[in-house]
Design a protein around this nucleic acid. Sequence first.
DNA 1: AAGCGCATTCTTGTATACAAGAGCGTTGAC
DNA 2: GTCAACGCTCTTGTATACAAGAATGCGCTT
Lengths: 215, 215
Amino acid sequence: MRRAQALRDALEQEIITGRFRPGDRLDEQSLAARFEVSRTPIREALMQLASTGLVELQARRGAFVTLLSFKDVVERFEVMAALEGMCGALAARRITQAMQREIEKVHEDCVREASQENADAYYYANERFHHLIYEACQNRFLAEQAAQLHARLKPYRRLQLRARSRVANSLAEHQSIVDAIRDGDGERTERLLREHILIQGERLADFIASFERAA
Amino acid sequence: MRRAQALRDALEQEIITGRFRPGDRLDEQSLAARFEVSRTPIREALMQLASTGLVELQARRGAFVTLLSFKDVVERFEVMAALEGMCGALAARRITQAMQREIEKVHEDCVREASQENADAYYYANERFHHLIYEACQNRFLAEQAAQLHARLKPYRRLQLRARSRVANSLAEHQSIVDAIRDGDGERTERLLREHILIQGERLADFIASFERAA
DNA sequence: AAGCGCATTCTTGTATACAAGAGCGTTGAC
DNA sequence: GTCAACGCTCTTGTATACAAGAATGCGCTT
């Protein structure tokens, strides 16, 4: 069983991959028909998605895929930068030897996948890199919050790692972050990670701005 | 209508005020009977509370009031300190004249209520003070996140403002925060707010530690 | 012809009925 | 007497039926 959970994942995927687009209405009945379940687990799944911010529930009007404005996205990247910076600061001070080695290993994975120009593999290695930093902060709650917002920004982050120069810069930034953590320098790690994320946010902001201008 | 929402608020209050204590099981049937509604809106309310972290849903086992360990609370205060610090930093750089005046006014309210030794009134004035800083950051998402975690920590925060000396110190800290914001000094505001929150966290940690030792 | 109002219909919100898994007690065997 | 297994019950998870609010379209009136 546990249909609601499965539905949650399925809908999340469809939203992230663009099957449903921001602003789209999610009709309970048609979803129930399509997945061949009753409305009950559909409603549960929608409420769970609403709690993560992926959809919005309007009273008596139904569920809609959250439509983030330009400002909304910038705001979230601002917070993401702060959270990741904090993770980094704590990680640099608290990290274990084993964790340190693991991060270095995953960083090497990133380098390898980038050199092979395997976009998807690089994307996933990059994701593991960031998740390791979340976990290394030794604050489970912070790690969860960071991971959740990270996931929430996924649809927007994927848009931008196309430019090859960005990948090269990103790797250089990762390297200096790894170094800063190894040195146990919390402040430097925090600053580097903040900038690393904010650059992404700014890139994306440029992208969205050009997109909105075209529309 | 909108029973689920009303139930959510009612249950939240009962948890915050201690009618239900951390670890308690929340039985759907008995709640439905007590509130004279069916299980459906009860389930909705419980899921909403779960999304904010106030209760935990265990699959096939039901809902339990979240029992935060000592470590859990410390972790949350660590994050709260960072979020509030960030709010303060942004607020100091972005605050409007009107907002500045409003914060000063509420700060004066805090001073007045404290001098009258009206614990509840002071508590609420203090809460308004912090919420104003959240809003002043001009990042709606950050403000929401901060407010949510703030609310989440409410049951734990109330335990500790008993000591009179803490109130006096707290007011002095508020004053220097107001000054730092007026000066537009983001870094100083951030540092002061972080410390202001972390002190609360440490006080509470001491309290919990002594409590757990006694038990 | 245009605007307002009413009714119909569609959708969400709530109640109830049903299914299935988990825990617990009892009973039987060793 | 103790341990294990079986079955019962209790609770959650899902389906369906019902109620109520919101939107839309049609008709009537001016």
